[in-house]
Design a binder for these strands. Structure first.
Length: 280
DNA sequence: ATGACGGCTATCAGCCGA
């Protein structure tokens, strides 16, 4: 099974690019973030024509997550237990939820497509929301793995954190000045790992960014950030047999500012591509 | 070229993104 996570920065603006990539790369499950639309606005037809069913969680023009799969999706969940909400003028507990998390069980693997809040600025309420969101996510992982320690579980998506200095090549992102690199954000990311997850891509792809700002020639200068991850439980990491960061998807006409991150899993059931061509 | 930001709507200005 080949999965990919991708912040597409509006699925309507580049649906042809997104579906073409999924087909060309042989993606079985595409976990999308920032679809920027409601379900009734989602361009289902190009996905369905390519053999993908799609589960969508979108409330308005902001955020939005979806999963396109050509394998059966079971037990779809929207938002994770304990996920906080956010809205200007509301405080803490009664703020409505945003569309930042969707999950499905596919071939026994619990996959999440997550769009972690940006944070905006260190003194912005959105920054506190980001840290609360990450702590709730950590608690979800702890509870889920306590109930089922062997579960193949993966958190995929845009975490909006550059965990190490090597993950920050953008000179406008500075510790003490901007979000994405603060000690508190990095500690929250580390706490997810301490809860029983590991970055399954980094051991295979040790270098490289997943995002380059549209501004300031960031891509040609390779001044990007590594902020999109696939974090897997032990039961997930054990079946990872390959990974890639699809840097070429930042090139050409109308790219997203993020590129896909891909992982290959070796699951017993799925061997069609490896069998000899006995039927011609 | 990988080249100076792009997507959205309560649109032609303002918000959001990282």
């Amino acid at each position: 099974m080949r999965i990919a996570t991708w912040n597409v920065n509006s699925v309507r603006a580049r649906v042809e690019r997104v579906v073409a990539f999924a087909e060309r790369a042989g993606i079985d499950v595409l976990l999308m973030q920032e679809i920027k639309c409601k379900p009734e606005q989602f361009p289902f037809a190009p996905f369905e024509d390519a053999g993908y069913a799609v589960e969508v969680h979108g409330l308005n023009q902001w955020n939005g997550v979806a999963i396109a799969s050509r394998l059966p999706m079971e037990d779809v969940e929207r938002s994770f237990p304990g996920m906080p909400g956010f809205k200007k003028g509301y405080d803490g507990d009664d703020a409505p939820l945003e569309a930042r998390a969707i999950s499905a069980l596919i071939d026994g693997v619990r996959l999440w497509s997550l769009y972690v809040p940006n944070g905006r600025a260190l003194d912005d309420p959105h920054y506190a929301y980001k840290l609360t969101f990450l702590e709730a996510l950590r608690q979800y992982v702890v509870d889920t793995l306590a109930a089922d320690p062997d579960l193949p579980l993966a958190l995929t998506g845009d975490f909006n954190i550059a965990p190490t200095d090597a993950d920050n090549g953008d000179p406008s992102i500075v510790e003490g000045v901007t979000t994405h690199v603060s000690p508190a954000e990095r500690a929250a990311f580390q706490a997810l790992l301490d809860a029983g997850l590991s970055d399954v891509v980094r051991p295979i792809v040790p270098e490289g960014f997943t995002f380059w700002d549209y501004k300031q020639l960031r891509f040609p200068r390779d001044e990007g950030l590594r902020i999109d991850f696939i974090l897997g439980s032990a039961g997930f990491a054990d079946v990872v047999e390959g990974a890639s960061i699809e840097r070429d998807e930042r090139k050409g006409e109308g790219p997203s500012d993020h590129v896909p991150v891909v992982v290959d899993l070796s699951l017993e059931e799925e061997d069609e591509d490896d069998l000899p061509m006995i039927f011609g």
